[in-house]
Design a protein around this nucleic acid. Structure first.
Lengths: 171, 171
DNA sequence: ATGGATGCAAAGCGTTTGCATACAG
DNA sequence: CTGTATGCAAACGCTTTGCATCCAT
């Protein structure tokens, strides 16, 4: 028999597929892996991209050849479950929507958010977690995770006119 | 004549009151400091606490002795302006509401968010900004700020029963 | 079989906006 | 005076939910 909180800590074992992993989680909750839920998980894990609920709704809400139509309500409900299951997580908020990403079998990282083009860019840095781990400990805080958005202008948007000379910039 | 972007960088001078500071900002935008706006700023800066729009609405929406009643719409509009003015900033999202805090005359800091009691706890750590500054530079990203939420269980909520002896905790 | 799951449409909820009226400069 | 700002209520956009029907186990 497996322990209760086990699936919370066996991230090292990146073996089972997201669908399988989800089924396991559902089982522990007395819930079922339905066709709809499987369709949603497959769609979400088809590629490692940030996404929001509406994008998934857009893709699965209209009839598809494989008959995989899923309702908006079910998509919202399933995304919540996936979050509880630890398969995805909220990374930011953009345009009044929560933005999610895969949180299963993926290395820890954070994001830049460009204020001009709104694009999210991932970056990895182990120092950050280390510092946070230490600071949390200092405060008796039991850290379970963090959410870090670095705001500013991305490299692309930073060089705007691109055609004009830049000599007179700062007299 | 002052330059365009000047008020973006004179944070060092912590002299003017929030209201005065706001008036300055409004002036640069061809906007006016109305009674309502002043009431809102005073209310927000009355004490250094995190707040959300609804709390301010609750306090200013019902008639008050000083006749300072302000409508919900104006409060939302003013909070946006205060954010643009750099007087306040969003720090987190709690209960589906944006949580704000003072960002004028206050040292940089980040927050713990307790998953049990939902409370926000500030902490300061200069390493974090330093690391981010460096990482951003490495990516050609022009950082303007960041938003960091550290999630977990606060010291208070971590020691639950509190009345029971703790000898048998871990056989 | 049968309790959980889906789909639909309606409700929720924080936030925004159109418009007529009311002031700050 | 005149262009802004306010207040009200209706509109919005994302998300949640009630309920009848459906299906995984």
């Amino acid at each position: 028999m497996s322990d209760l909180a086990v699936n919370e800590f066996d991230r090292q074992e990146v073996a089972a597929s997201p669908v399988e992993k989800f089924r396991e989680y559902l089982a522990t909750q007395g819930k079922r892996l339905t066709q709809e839920r499987e369709t949603i998980v497959r769609e979400i894990f088809a590629e490692h991209e940030h996404f929001d609920s509406d994008q998934i709704v857009a893709r699965l809400t209209q009839p598809r050849r494989d008959g995989g139509r899923v309702s908006r309500a079910t998509i919202y409900r399933t995304i919540s479950s996936l979050e509880e299951a630890g398969l995805i997580r909220k990374v930011a908020r953009s345009n009044d929507r929560e933005v999610y990403e895969h949180d299963y079998g993926y290395p820890q990282h954070d994001h830049f958010i460009c204020e001009k083009c709104q694009q999210l860019v991932e970056f990895r840095n182990e120092e950050i977690s280390a510092v946070l781990e230490r600071v949390a400990a200092d405060h008796g805080f039991r850290m379970s995770g963090h959410r870090l958005e670095v705001h500013g202008i991305c490299a692309e948007c930073a060089k705007p006119p691109s055609r004009r000379h830049r000599k007179l910039d700062m007299i």
